[in-house]
Amino acid sequence: MTEATLEIDRLSKRYGELVALNEMTFDVRSGELFGFVGSNGAGKTTTMRIAMGVLATDSGEVRWQGRPVDFDTRRKIGYMPSERGLYPKMKVHDQLVYLGELHGMVAADARRAADEWTERLGLAERRKDEVQKLSLGNQQRVQLAAALIHDPEVLILDEPFSGLDPMAVDVMSSVLREKASAGAPVIFSSHQLELVERFCDRVGIIRSGEMVACGTVDELRGDAALRIRIDVPSAQPGWNDAIAGVRLIEQTGSVHVVELSPGVDDQRLLAAALATGPVREFSPHRPALTELFRNVVSQEVAQ
């Protein structure tokens, strides 16, 4: 484990009979964008709140650079909660300066940083506006500026892309990549799985308070059963029924996506496809993160 790593080590949290977290364990490495995904109530926000000291854990530990996270360490973390953590009647620039000072910045440095981030995030013309007068998307930008104002060593962001238009998403993702490139571990949760797949170096899928899958999207795909996409325009229904271990996943017109059980020879499937007539496509089907996530959720329902 490298020193510049945020470690979540066996966190557990209960509310009476409800198990919110059950030995939640993962790490976010220096320079890494880590996507944290799960259904509502799976434990993402609870994990982040414990990391920030907003909630106490029943057991387990959060470490940064090999040491338990304490008050001084948390001042070096940029945190963006899912709910608005801003003063609605306070002006944007004044609020950012104030929050910078709370993180230990001197006033001049806080003002300079507030100028830089409002400019960078497209808020320069709204600096003197009260937060409550901004659109939800611009409030989200202010929230990000508040997390970045003190040049944090770690970023923990809960649903940072919520409510953003495509241009704001591009700005947000650019900023997060920049922080990661500078060496900061960056963790964010999101229900927008296509963004997670596009931006993140690794992804953790959480279910019922436990980490059930973690790795790059390609690594997560490697754990999935082999799927083949086949375009057989002349095929009749049941053309592949003679091959055991082949299951139809979806069909759109002449295009079939089938799943092969372990040990099934894909060449037998190709031969059966060719026997129907022309084959326009025969290629491995790479499931998107949305599909991988859905499979994990369906496993939970089936249990």
Rank of each mutant, 00 (worst) to 15 (best):
M1Q: 10
L102I: 14
D170I: 07
L99G: 02
V169F: 06
E61F: 04
T47P: 03
R67C: 05
G104A: 11
M1D: 09
K179P: 03
G277S: 12
Q303I: 07
T118N: 00
S283K: 13
G263F: 04
L96H: 13
P287L: 09
V212G: 03
E116K: 11
V203K: 14
A51V: 13
V212Y: 00
A146I: 08
R268M: 13
R10I: 01
G253Y: 04
D72I: 00
E101I: 14
I230A: 12
A168Q: 15
T25S: 15
S261H: 06
T57S: 15
R268V: 06
V212R: 08
G137Q: 10
T216Y: 02
V92S: 01
V279E: 01
K128P: 00
K128F: 02
E197P: 06
R207H: 13
G38W: 02
D266W: 11
R207E: 14
H103E: 03
D223Q: 15
A56Y: 13
Q236D: 12
R126V: 13
A20K: 07
Q95C: 10
F188T: 05
L123M: 00
R141N: 11
V203T: 14
D72Y: 08
R198V: 01
A147I: 09
L220F: 09
L176E: 06
E17C: 01
S135T: 10
C214D: 15
E281R: 15
D129F: 13
S82N: 14
K13M: 01
V257T: 15
R14Y: 07
A213I: 05
Q65K: 15
H285Y: 15
V186Y: 03
G43Q: 08
M172W: 07
A56N: 13
D265M: 07
R280F: 07
L55G: 09
R67P: 02
S190G: 09
R14L: 10
Y98N: 01
D231H: 00
